[in-house]
Design a protein around this nucleic acid. Structure first.
Length: 264
DNA sequence: ATGCATGTTACATG
DNA sequence: ACATGTAACATGCA
């Protein structure tokens, strides 16, 4: 489920536990989410420590703790973070549970495609400084966007938008939403775009990012009915612009939803 | 039972 | 070397 804005939402869910001592660390080390970390070292570094801050970049999350400790979290397809107040509120697939004095900070992930990582460094871990430009940032301007599409001109736009090294945070629904709003078909190649379509795509990308953050990142509410978002998975779902039934195709191995009359 | 799912990556193929 | 496609990961749901 989690893309740019969902990740930002889940990241904020651990805030009630900030600046509280982590009294207990419970984790299920059988689970694939810990494939790139030593669970022993993870427990050692977290227990008695405190979360002091957090940030996101695309679909990545990074939590800062005292003593040069950083906790990386990726939610994969079905991961989520929650703060649980009630005692004994532990649920199935709660793979990491941090006990603080006012509740439990939980990482839950049924399909286990998500990942927990540990970094030890005085400042931000080095990899974090070298992440690609964020779509919401000023350096991600039209010139930069154009250069990406030029470099990967042969690739279908849908696949291109899903590339995390270029569009960090875009997932399946956001890619479809961006293309739909720009009125461009998802199977078009980057090099086939007219200049006006290129502009429309860029504007649409910025719009969808901003809107997603506004609606979803704050309280997980759905975007308005005027978006493709609420219609795309419904059987027989209709295009909010034309009222015509939406199309489904596989592109780059992912189910893609689009509107035939609307997107050229 | 079958097929599919808002993600990533290793491997295969051209 | 490069670009794109596919299978695999593990579980739940229709």
């Amino acid at each position: 489920m989690p893309e740019l804005a969902e990740v930002a939402f889940y990241c904020s869910q651990w805030r009630p536990g900030f600046n509280r001592t982590i009294r207990s660390v419970k984790l299920n080390d059988k689970v694939r989410c810990f494939r790139d970390v030593s669970t022993r070292q993870l427990s050692l570094k977290l227990k008695g420590n405190r979360l002091t801050g957090s940030r996101t970049h695309g679909k990545r999350m990074l939590f800062q703790l005292r003593n040069s400790t950083w906790l990386g979290v990726h939610l994969g397809m079905t991961g989520s973070l929650a703060f649980r107040k009630e005692e004994g509120a532990i649920e199935t697939h709660d793979h990491l549970v941090l006990g603080v004095e006012n509740g439990w900070l939980v990482f839950n992930d049924p399909r286990q495609f998500g990942k927990v990582e540990l970094y030890v460094s005085k400042g931000l871990p080095e990899f974090w400084e070298n992440l690609p430009r964020e779509m919401e940032s000023a350096p991600f301007d039209f010139g930069y966007f154009e250069s990406i599409l030029h470099r990967r001109g042969r690739s279908p736009l849908k696949s291109l938008l899903l590339d995390q090294s270029l569009f960090p945070g875009v997932g399946n629904w956001m890619a479809d939403e961006v293309l739909w709003r720009a009125r461009v078909r998802p199977n078009r190649s980057a090099r086939s775009l007219e200049r006006s379509e290129l502009k429309a795509l860029f504007r649409s990308l910025k719009f969808v990012c901003r809107g997603a953050m506004k609606y979803i990142a704050t309280d997980f509410s759905d975007p308005p009915k005027s978006w493709l978002f609420t219609h795309r998975w419904k059987p027989g779902g209709r295009c909010p612009k034309t009222g015509v039934e939406l199309e489904r195709t596989q592109i780059g191995g992912r189910t893609t939803c689009w509107s035939a009359e609307w997107q050229k």
